[in-house]
Design a protein around this nucleic acid. Structure first.
Lengths: 205, 205
DNA sequence: GATTATACAGACAGATCTGTCTATTTTCAA
DNA sequence: TTGAAAATAGACAGATCTGTCTGTATAATC
């Protein structure tokens, strides 16, 4: 994330250019919607430009290539994702075990939403499946961060064998995302929550 | 792997055009490899033709469009998949619970193989994410069949609440496929097996 | 030998793809 | 008001995409 030449807004602590950032953000937002809806390869630059109402040269001034645009979108969405997830988890004070379960409440909420169409990052790795591809790497980094958050929740709940439990819960989340998207139903997420509860109870002993 | 022109072998009971089936199978096999390796949108018809050594008109004589080719590949791979899975599961006589666990042994074997690059059908749904898209439907049908096989194993093991357990185990499998592909490691499959064992033991009570 | 199937090579249409370029207009600070 | 920065439209190159078409070659069958 690069902050560019400042303008107006002189007082603030965050000095950010308006127009420039605005166009950039328009592009990122539009690109995200189209990539998410239609896929990465299936979405052409021209379509993004038309939807965003931005000229081609403006895009290529901000991003060197389509790949770089994709990477920027992945990064932004990952940040938004983790912020939203964290907020949800911390929203209510809960007993440690219950807080862990909140991750699955969040999951259920997500897959139940009208906009849900599977995981943006899973799709990235599906289309760019080579492990060394920068896009695959970026998506994987997102997954690693997510795993880290689950892991932290498990540790804070002072489970023994925290790695094992965190691994297992993460698999449930990932599987539920796939199945919920595949079937268009939130039920898999609910089932994942039940499975998680079993595993959590088991881990306590 | 397609066996090519049988030539001779004139006696047979099934009278099928030889050349035709052969070319068709060459196309399906090559198309599968390329779709699996590089994705559906990223793989052009011309590349398939070049790799398969088949003329363009031959392809369009067998399939009306690229979409129809994709559907045929999905169907064929799904058949092969289920046959291979069933054979593995039934290979050794086991106690019911152990047979269920065999599904996870199969999973571990699969994701450990050099050729593993994630799930062909997950990728199809990732690229054709609209529920009503025929390609999505075909991939979903595959997943439904797989779920059915897991379900059958659970029922045969005479677990109470067979649906719940089958649902949960399926999620673990799916999640492990995603993570094993994402990370390039078979470990998630091993963790899924452990989680499955926990759930199975729990379900017995 | 004649007929019919199948497959061939390769040109072609028409659309779309990413990325480059130029020339013009808008924006906004000094 | 002036001048630099930013964004514009739109042409363009060159590649690639799916799908069509023609005419020819190969091979099995009658």
């Amino acid at each position: 994330m690069s902050l560019l030449s400042p303008v107006k807004e002189s007082s603030a602590s965050t000095r950010r250019p308006r127009q420039r950032l605005t166009k950039r953000d328009q592009l990122l937002e539009t690109a995200w919607q189209l990539f998410y809806r239609n896929g990465y390869h299936a979405t052409g630059i021209d379509r993004i430009l038309a939807d965003a109402g931005v000229a081609k040269m403006t895009l290529y001034k901000h991003f060197r290539s389509k790949e770089e645009l994709i990477l920027a979108v992945l990064e932004k969405r990952s940040d938004q994702f983790h912020e939203s997830f964290s907020r949800f988890i911390r929203a209510k004070k809960r007993a440690p075990e219950r807080q862990l379960l909140a991750a699955f409440d969040w999951l259920i909420t997500w897959v139940s939403s009208k906009e849900f169409r599977g995981c943006f990052f899973q799709k990235a790795m599906a289309e760019y499946q080579d492990l060394h591809d920068p896009i695959h790497q970026a998506a994987l980094a997102h997954k690693a961060t997510f795993y880290g958050e689950i892991r932290r929740l498990v540790v804070e709940s002072s489970f023994p064998n925290s790695k094992t439990l965190a691994d297992q819960l993460t698999l449930l989340v990932e599987g539920a995302i796939v199945y919920s998207h595949a079937t268009g139903s939130p039920m898999p997420a609910v089932q994942a929550r039940e499975a998680a509860w079993s595993l959590i109870k088991n881990a306590r002993r």
